[in-house]
Design a protein around this nucleic acid. Sequence first.
DNA 1: TTAAGTTATCTTTTT
DNA 2: GATAACTTAA
Length: 840
Amino acid sequence: MTTPLNAESAPASTTRSATPIILDSIGYAGMGVREQSPLLDGLNPQQKEAVEYRGQALLIIAGAGSGKTSVLTRRVASLLETRDAWPSQILAITFTNKAAAEMRERVHAILGQASDGMWISTFHSSCVRILRREADKIGLSSTFSIYDSADSRVTLKRIIKALDADTYGFTPGSAGAKISKLKNELADADSYARNANMSDPQEVMFVEIFRQYSARLRAASALDFDDLIGETVYLFRAFPKVAALYRRRFRHLLVDEYQDTNHAQYALVHELTRPVAAELAQEMEDDGVHVRNLRDATGAIPGASLTVVGDSDQSIYAFRGADTRNISGFERDYPGAKVILLEQNYRSTQNILSAANAVIGHNFDRTDKKLWSAGGDGEKIIGYTAYSGHDEAQFVSDEIQVLHSAGMAYRDMAVFYRTNAQTRALEEILVRSATPYRVVGGTKFYERAEIKDALAYLIAVANPVDELALRRILNTPKRGIGPATETGLSSFADDNGLTFRQAMRNSAALGLGPKVTGAILKLAELLDAAALMLVPTRVTGDGVPIGGSNVSEVLEFLLAGSGLLAVLRGSRDPQDEARAENIEELVAQTKDFNKENPDGGLVDFLTQVSLVAAADDLDDASGTVSLMTLHTAKGLEYEAVFLTGVEEGLLPHQMSANEPGGPAEERRLFYVGITRARQRLYLSLAMTRAQFGNINVAMPSRYLQEIPAELIDWKQSPGTANSHGGTQPRALNARREGGFGGFGNSLSGSGNGSTSGSNSAQAGLPPGKPKTEWANKITGTVRDNGALELTAGDRIRHHDFGEGRVNQVTGEGTKRIAHVQFDTAGAKKLLIKIAPIEKI
DNA sequence: TTAAGTTATCTTTTT
DNA sequence: GATAACTTAA
């Protein structure tokens, strides 16, 4: 190809400046001239510039809904169309496989076969691809295992137990978080130890944990998620010649969601875009690597061009080490970088955007950016305050039905929440109302125990030195190998310098019972036999071809040989039936994999499985409502969005309160949620929220106050919400007409919106604090029975359930719960503080 | 060694 | 309210 890098001094805009006016009138066909590529159809001037700019470094600040993905894909297409790049010279990096798949699809739609050879993938899968190829350089097996967080946890747990480190206050979680954080900063145990205060015994202990953790992973030829990035950076830094090959190959790097990159990812991008020094370039040429037409006047290969897209307002992964300074410092890191701002929003109505702007405006320390839309105000945001999480779910479900009967497809609606635990109530109600839905993420398929078991068999075959996988399957299904035998094998291996697998093969030397020894040997033989199946086809002495099996054949062999599936099928536990079905689903997936990747081996399958993310299996074509966390919602958009649980303690989440920058990050999360909506946005909250099986009072989120009152139409505002909840809230809440008096409540009469309901005139009920304004003034004060004392044996009257007898009172303070046997309504648990009850 | 039963702890968000 | 972690019985 010709010299694409000259473009630096001759940006496309100048070469093409002859036809700016025509560009603006595109759409009326006939523009066969190359310069008026249809790639620019329907783009605004900033977007066009972002597509066409040719230079060393480009930063696109893309507000929510500003057409970022479209710009990015068209930019890739444009690079090819103008012959500034070959497909193989492009590396586009996203955060999720889903985003990568979408981009690949869109690029393919524009270019067809021309997109072959391009790398469009996540940070993690790009790194795996590189690392598998170069594994031997850094002392890894090319079939290295990838440990997910659960695997890391198990490993850390064993280490902590062996070191008695829990006496120093270490848990697998705390140690893991700290190690992850350090790895994201590209530190290892040694570099950390150099700067640590080693007179602090806790620090000494941590360093030891870190060391052993690294050692175990190494011994198992395994990498955790953080290592995938870190080791790639290490590889490039330690082996300049290897790095040079990739720098030569990838001439155009595009990184999406740049605001969410952590230091390691930043460093990786930096390594990939560095120039190759003249001497090294010469060496490569001498080695027969084709680099001549890439070299500049000095003989060096200039750094690849870099395009990053981001929006610091949507940075929601600081907890994972994301550093927005990567984006704010971009112009410093890449001098001469071009910055393009995309502010026009093509997604949402102005009302939604105004709410979003107002909310995010409360974050200080940000460059002001105002999203605007030419699409009109649209509907108001709907607010709803429910009595309980269940009630809230019912509201969501009802509104979904309303939208659906008004013609909106289920797939255009989504329900968001802060924590995965919130799905339970939603699912319950959606099932009951026969609403088709799917939970995106959450307890993922591949995290199920039985799936991890089956995969562990495959991993043990692919990577025989992986002790973790072996120990997982050692007694799964049960074959009489207990923990004692397991540790025995492990220390036997350590003492004799063997791997766990070798120890298994030599287990006869341990002097265990014949039954146990037999079981161990049988497992070892099974795995060995499976490994042989994978060796490429060859012919035995008597002419029988063997080997060359694909993934599903090996998996089926292992399942049959181990009895894993048979045991589940024969079990009397009804849940095991579902487990067996899951394993069969896994088998089906391996068959699909074989079909889609005829050349793909076992390791490829395992890699794919290890790196699938929550949002990945999101199938837009399925006609279902999507349920997901706010985090997985990033990058997606829906006609209607239900943002649930907008409460203090949930959004912002309790845990964020103590973290520096926590509340601001939570606000961005809220902002991300709001900006996913195209037409309709619903904000809902509950006055009580169940967690850990008991019920807590919840207060409206502080962020609600930040939205101008006139943008929200409260079907039931936090102030006026009555407390008719429980099992029959529908008829009572009377929200459809927007009024609250349907049940003889005297709310409007008293003018204070207190939640005392129709019982307010009766004695024994302390009046709620009078409230004055409600519209959107969130005070969080709800009914307060305050000091109402109840003891077992008391008779009470409930507004909805009638009279009953208190059996028991549990909990303390505001969380006291009365267990009541109602005369007609049955047994209920009530939160005394807010329940519409009185003593009689 | 396993199965069954009991208790403690837990939850933020994810590649 | 679910799961991991622990106890006890067989």
